[in-house]
Simulated assay, not measured.
Amino acid sequence: MSNIELKGLPISKSSALPPVHTWTPPFCGDMNLVIKANGEWFHEGGKIKRSSMVSLFSRILWHEAGEYFLVTPVEKVRIQVEDAPFLVTAWQWIDTEKGRSIEFKTQTEDVLILGIDCDIWMASFSGEERPYVSMRYGMKALVGRNVFYGVAEYLERVDTSEGDGMGLISAGKSYLLLQDA
């Protein structure tokens, strides 16, 4: 088991993400860290209760060839993710230059605008259809049940390249979530 060295990483409230896409550290082994399907983070069997620690780790998370890693400029350790590493916990309508848009916020304080920063789709996990949004570096966030119920009130008829049915329109883009039978 490996622990990741966090020395040298900036500790700040800044929304700027570290440039992990430019780092090419050597693989240093596996870390006993699991992101559960409900969005909770566990280290060595115990839940990480400090949201600031989860947020720090989320900023150095990297997805590569179907696996997840925490990376720093000098090392890379593999972690386990049961479903999606992020969880959308809040949403609101906002006005953007592209029109009325849905803004999502994750448990790690990431802010995404549907149709601008992310897309939404339905996919199966353990036999259950679940909504996801795209995130940085090819990762995804599960849309929390309470958030999905909130946005579901705004489902409307959409016609997309995937088909017709019920979906969302945000920033001028249509997203099919429930296809006509």
Rank of each mutant, 00 (worst) to 15 (best):
D95L: 11
S14E: 08
I94Y: 11
V143Q: 03
T108D: 14
D180L: 04
V111G: 08
G165P: 05
S52A: 11
V147S: 12
E162N: 00
M122S: 08
E82K: 05
E64T: 12
K36S: 03
I60A: 02
R78W: 09
L112F: 13
E128H: 10
F104A: 06
R100N: 10
G150V: 11
S15H: 13
V54N: 10
C28G: 10
I94P: 04
K47M: 15
V54Q: 07
L87G: 10
S12A: 14
G163Q: 00
P10N: 07
S170K: 06
H21R: 14
I35L: 02
E153S: 08
S55P: 08
K36Y: 09
G150W: 08
M166N: 11
S126E: 15
D110N: 07
L6E: 13
L168G: 07
L178W: 02
S2G: 10
S174Y: 06
S174I: 02
L114P: 06
L70W: 02
P10D: 12
L155S: 08
I102E: 13
E40N: 15
P25W: 01
E75L: 09
S124K: 10
D117F: 05
V111E: 15
L56N: 09
T108V: 15
I48H: 03
E40T: 15
K76E: 02
L87F: 09
V54S: 04
R100G: 11
L142F: 12
L17S: 12
D117K: 01
A84W: 06
A181T: 09
K76Y: 01
G45E: 06
T96C: 02
